[in-house]
Write a protein that binds this DNA or RNA. Structure first.
Lengths: 346, 346
DNA sequence: GTGAAAGCGCTAACAG
DNA sequence: CTGTTAGCGCTTTCAC
């Protein structure tokens, strides 16, 4: 690998001049600059990032803290990573994929102490996330995909649950539904403080209220079996519900089975929405479910970009909310008009 | 951040002694060593990886080349990344997630020229992969998840398609099936030289032959619609087929629809196997499909580990094949005994 | 405009 | 066993 010195020798100038010419750090005569650039090109010179980083205290490397995959982990989480990696790349940075284990704080202390990364990207952020508190205290630049309860001036990109809920409610309301039920994420799979579960729950309730349509929640099925049970209990207690929004993929499988078991069909007898699941998963269902697809790639990109912005200069905190995209499938239709016999057609 | 010098001052020894004590590079008196370790601990000293890398020419950073996600991309690819990142971490290394774009070779040249990474991990390896050729020529250490047509002495971890096919065939044969069909990956979604498609195709044929059961292939549906059509054509041409192995998730959706359309049920009238799809996807189906689940995490781990082995010392090339895990679902059963009316029960 | 020189934090000879 | 010294490749004063 050729170094600055090799370029300097070939161009017959001093090392510092080469550095200046290549980085534009200070004015260099046009002719000299051309000579240097040519020499660099001929030698295939690439700046050594380690040397540069050692000197400048900036490595242009970001770390994405990647929690150990748990149930419910899927495409969206992977999109965070790929989106962040792409955005980083476009902005001349690199992305380290840093798996988290038993003691996130200790690992964070270690990682940031290495001098290897300029900043950290947090995902799967809890409402009271200790990592965020630690990084703030340690003065390490970071941004979040998701957000804590009170993000203060921390940069973050999160799902706009209010808009998502509004869109979902508007979608079913437009079809004529007057009674909507909501199955939240299981309290088992996620700690109770898990942001998406809390926020989605609140916002769906608010959106339904604002739209003046009936609303039932309280169920939190986390598996197909629980989904089946939840749906049966729902129909017992609230037979007038005609539309259902489900957060958990597996629960949706159970709901579909339960619907079939009572001789009903989707969408004729029940409008089913899958919330926070990717369209790719929705396509696995038959009929294809209407989905509120989380903007995973976009959030990853935003998270990386705002972190890089922060590293470069400091502006005001960037806090972005992006709604899920409603992808209409074949699981939404006007409400059934009778009880058990299915919807009458005109 | 405290440096070696700070530790040296506090312990009243020379910098090089601290380095030696902390790295075990050369013998250090027990007492001195203890003093040094204590000083380091008190200061919270962390070695600066940049400085170390600059000097030692080893950064302990690996790059995983991550192709732009395309259709058919899923959990398995993510598992490569998380598995590799975890294994790297356990072995004291870091993993850079490096997205690939238009010109993989140029990007590879760039990445390796930066001096940032010690080695490269390739995934989605083609039978004639130009990246492998480039890295070999450039003398950059690398390993592959997947493999080229002729891997020579390159380290790789790949799926054991022969064992996978054998297991799948044995599974259906044990249930009593005598006629198996195989739907390969679409030639559209993947270039014709895509290893898994080619190898799985060959090995399923071989396994069926070896087991002495009838075998039909040639279909390559890449979507639900194509899956539906393929199944109908299959049943027309080969009405005696009772078991079907499908490589593409979406095609499986179509097959299931087609099965239902002709009034059949799974598994009573057709045993359906999903090959190379994660159990998580299989659970989305109803009934839950029997799956041959690719060892994504394992392959990622192996890939990282063999690369690190290669970087440390050089032994013989490591070439590992890992079979898919057969996860029995509710889509396999003994063959139907009659044509259209479904299986008679005893 | 350009060059010489110091030094980022570390490792690895080489003396002692 | 321990200290001194010389860089790794780069950025950055500071003279000229």
């Amino acid at each position: 690998m050729p170094s600055l010195r090799d370029v300097a020798e070939r161009a017959q100038v001093a090392i510092s001049t080469v550095s200046a010419a290549l980085n534009g750090t200070r004015p260099v005569a046009a002719g000299t600059k051309r000579r240097i650039e040519q020499a660099a090109a001929e030698l295939g010179y690439r700046p050594n990032l380690l040397a540069r980083g050692l000197q400048s205290k900036r490595t242009r490397i970001l770390a994405l803290l990647y929690p150990a995959p748990r149930s419910g982990f899927g495409l969206t989480e992977m999109q965070f990573a790929t989106g962040a990696a792409e955005a980083a790349r476009e902005l001349g940075h690199h992305l380290l994929l840093s798996p988290e284990h038993a003691d996130p704080i200790e690992e964070l202390r270690h990682l940031t102490g290495l001098g290897l990364v300029d900043g950290v990207l947090l995902m799967e952020v809890g409402l009271d996330d200790e990592r965020a508190a630690f990084l703030t205290a340690a003065g390490v630049p970071f941004s979040m995909i998701g957000r804590t309860r009170d993000p203060g001036s921390i940069d973050y990109a999160d799902i706009d649950f209010a808009a998502t809920a509004r869109d979902a409610v508007a979608h079913v309301a437009a079809l004529g539904h007057r009674e909507l039920a909501f199955f939240n994420l299981s309290s088992g799979a996620y700690a109770d403080g898990y942001g998406p579960a809390v926020r989605a729950g609140e916002e769906f309730a608010a959106a339904a209220r604002a739209a003046g349509i009936g609303y039932v929640d309280g169920h939190r099925p986390g598996s197909a079996e629980e989904g089946r049970e939840a749906f049966e209990r729902l129909m017992e207690a609230h037979p007038d519900v005609t539309a259902l929004a489900v957060m958990d993929d597996h629960a949706a499988v159970g709901v579909i089975a339960a619907v079939a078991a009572r001789g009903w069909r989707i969408p004729d007898d029940l409008t089913l929405l899958l919330v926070l699941s990717s369209a790719r998963v929705a396509e696995m269902f038959h009929p294809r479910l209407t989905t509120l697809e989380p903007p995973g790639t976009e959030l990853g990109r935003l998270g990386a970009r705002m972190l890089i912005d922060r590293l470069c200069g400091d502006g005001p905190p960037q806090q972005r909310l992006v709604p899920c995209r409603l992808v209409a499938g074949d699981s939404s239709a006007p409400p059934r008009t009778t009880g058990r016999e299915g919807r009458r057609r005109a």
